[in-house]
Computed example of a mutant assay.
Amino acid sequence: MSEYMSGGALLRALAPELLLTSGALAMLVGTVWSPQSQRAGAAEGAERTSTMSRFAVVLCLLVGLVVVIAWGDGATGTADQRLAGDGFRWAIDLVILLGTGMSLMLIDAEQHRSGAFSPEVPVLVLFAAVGMMILAAARDLMFVFLGVELMSLAVYVLAGVNRRSGRGAEAAVKYFLLGAVSTGFLLYGIALLYGATGSTRLVDIGQWVSAHPPLSPLFIVGAALLLVGLAFKVAAAPFHLWTPDVYDGAPLPITAFMSATVKTAAFAVFARVMVEALGRASAQWHTGLWWLAVATMVVGNVFALSQRNLVRMLAYSSIAHAGYLLVTLVVGGAAATTALVFYMV
């Protein structure tokens, strides 16, 4: 068997993501092909956005059907282990598609009420969902970085999509700047892990850890930087400072999308990295992750009590829930991933 899968096998492994991407690109072309004129009324713009949102919901349902078929097919393994074909991936994909569809419905309802969204918003939501599904499938740190960037760039724009809101612009800038810093940690950690192990595949990193019990300082620093980048994405304390401001400034449907769907994808890749790549090095990170979970639960719940704004209170509640989910990573193993999927649903 060759080390790398053929092009056809790779396309089959990425069939749901490719279908969702194709649909999003078709919608994007549609928005460019028939741009809204300045003379068009607000009702026409709202109707176009609603049409795009409904088409996106139908597309999510279609991609969900493809995911169910792939899950039931059973022949989902890949030759070079860059992409997962297990039940964990498909279950997370379904949660992502469900959250995306519900967020699109909220966008449709909010558009009729306030007219704050443009027709490009559903397209950005779909592109973010594509990045999340790549994260759910990633068993290679290069795919992890690709998924994080595709998801994050779309969500940065979505956070400030309401151009009439000053708080939305502030939320987008804060999210972008802090997100860029976290991406730097993530990328530098990937580079150091590659320098230490000679591979970016999670399985190879796990095997290297087993073969080198006294881990090198290069590997330990790389793993620490990688965990910092992932902790930012899941809003774990003390990397949570962006969360209340961004959730409060973004439109409510986008806040719902970030708090549930984005967090699902972030925890999916966090769990896969911890179990497949760093599971055999648990002696080095177990205590640190334990304290991270405790701090996140305490900070989220304590600071939520003093909030006078409902959305900020829910933001701190989301941080507390991140702490609960970190407990599953502390436990580790198959039971942890099962509990994580159950809690996400």
Rank of each mutant, 00 (worst) to 15 (best):
S6Q: 02
S6I: 04
G7Q: 10
G8C: 11
G8W: 11
G8M: 09
G8V: 07
A9F: 04
A9S: 13
L10E: 08
L11A: 15
L11E: 06
L11G: 08
L11H: 03
L11Y: 05
A13H: 06
A13V: 07
L14H: 03
L14D: 00
A15Y: 12
P16M: 05
E17R: 14
E17A: 14
L18F: 04
L18S: 05
L18G: 04
L19Y: 10
L19D: 00
L19A: 15
L20I: 07
T21N: 00
T21G: 09
T21F: 15
S22A: 14
S22T: 15
G23I: 05
G23L: 07
A24R: 07
L25H: 09
L25D: 00
A26N: 00
A26K: 06
L28E: 01
V29A: 12
V29M: 11
V29G: 01
V29S: 01
V29Y: 12
V29R: 03
G30N: 03
G30H: 05
G30K: 09
V32D: 04
W33S: 13
W33V: 11
W33L: 15
S34M: 11
S34N: 07
S34D: 10
S34K: 14
S34C: 09
S34E: 08
P35A: 00
P35D: 00
P35M: 01
S37C: 05
S37L: 15
S37E: 11
Q38P: 10
Q38F: 13
R39T: 13
R39H: 14
A40M: 14
A40G: 07
A40E: 12
G41Y: 08
A42N: 03
A42S: 12
A42F: 07
A43E: 05
A43F: 02
E44M: 13
E44H: 12
E44Q: 14
E44K: 12
E44D: 10
G45W: 08
G45K: 14
A46Q: 06
A46M: 13
E47A: 15
E47T: 14
R48V: 02
R48D: 01
R48L: 02
T49M: 03
T49I: 02
T51W: 15
T51Q: 08
T51H: 13
T51P: 01
M52G: 07
M52C: 12
M52Q: 11
S53N: 06
S53W: 04
S53Q: 02
S53A: 15
R54E: 01
F55A: 15
V57D: 01
V58W: 12
L59E: 00
C60N: 13
C60R: 04
C60L: 05
L61I: 13
L61W: 03
L62H: 08
V63N: 00
G64L: 02
L65Q: 05
L65K: 11
L65T: 12
V66L: 09
V67H: 05
V67P: 06
V68A: 14
V68G: 09
V68P: 05
V68Q: 14
V68S: 06
V68K: 13
I69T: 13
I69Q: 09
A70C: 07
W71N: 10
G72L: 12
G72K: 14
D73S: 15
G74C: 03
G74H: 03
G74F: 02
G74I: 09
